[in-house]
Design a protein around this nucleic acid. Structure first.
Lengths: 128, 128
DNA sequence: CAGCACCTTCCCATAATGGGAAGGTCAAGG
DNA sequence: CCTTGACCTTCCCATTATGGGAAGGTGCTG
């Protein structure tokens, strides 16, 4: 399987597959005689794992650890749980931050008429 | 006022003040005779504006526009309202995305015992 | 005069992704 | 047989916002 096929099958762009290989997230695998990268369904499976983890917001560094745990049949699920739990906390913290921003913005937007005149509580609010 | 003082007064690091100047977000202002940048309270006011806008999640590009509107006494508040409104939508979209991630993670975490054994619904869920 | 706390510019790094150039490979069709 | 098109390769550059750190100048204070 060439990289384009693996890309379509996994949802990871060819560009990113090469990148993941360059940073050692995935192994530099076999090459066809012409030098093209050669993939098997096992590789696609791994790429889909990475893709899903990205979709859950894990960083590539966290995914590196997750992949190690995934491959290691003697892991403790505790380690996975810990990593995911910390990640969830990060996300929850970000949500709270964004919600605070949103609340302030909504207040400012509510106070601003949004017409052709220059008076603007939004700018006043930011510049206060 | 030297850059360090302006930095403390505005909450924007000296590093960032120089950067904002380099990208044209703020004017390259006066220099003292020794070549040091010289700031006045007006500049600090502008920096605080930038700082607040950053705290509300506006990008430097959006802030560039906001600053133009702020300085332009003939602006329409409609323009500000529109920009802020779009930004709020972006934030709300991000919140929804993060909440979806958080929900999935919570489910997975809930299903995972997190003990010393290798069985792990989290890894299974990501790799499914 | 030494030392310290500033300041200057310049280069590099971060995280994840993509654009695009220059060039090799290979199959299908005129 | 050669062209065309769709792949592939590597390499360099850009993005966003922020900071670290080097090498060197300035200026007050002990």
């Amino acid at each position: 399987m060439q990289i384009g096929t693996a890309a379509k099958a996994s949802g990871v762009s060819a560009k990113m597959i090469r990148h993941y290989e360059a940073i050692g997230l995935i192994q530099s695998g076999a090459r066809q005689t012409n030098g093209y990268r050669d993939y098997e369904s096992r590789d696609v499976h791994e790429l889909r794992f990475i893709r899903s983890a990205r979709d859950l917001g894990f960083s590539l560094d966290e995914i590196r650890t997750l992949l190690d745990l995934w491959r290691n049949k003697g892991r403790s699920s505790r380690d996975v749980h810990q990593l995911a739990s910390r990640h969830l906390s990060d996300i929850e913290r970000k949500i709270v931050e964004l919600q605070a921003m949103a609340a302030t913005l909504r207040e400012l937007l509510h106070a601003c008429k949004g017409d052709s005149r220059p008076d603007c509580p939004i700018l006043d609010g930011i510049g206060r």
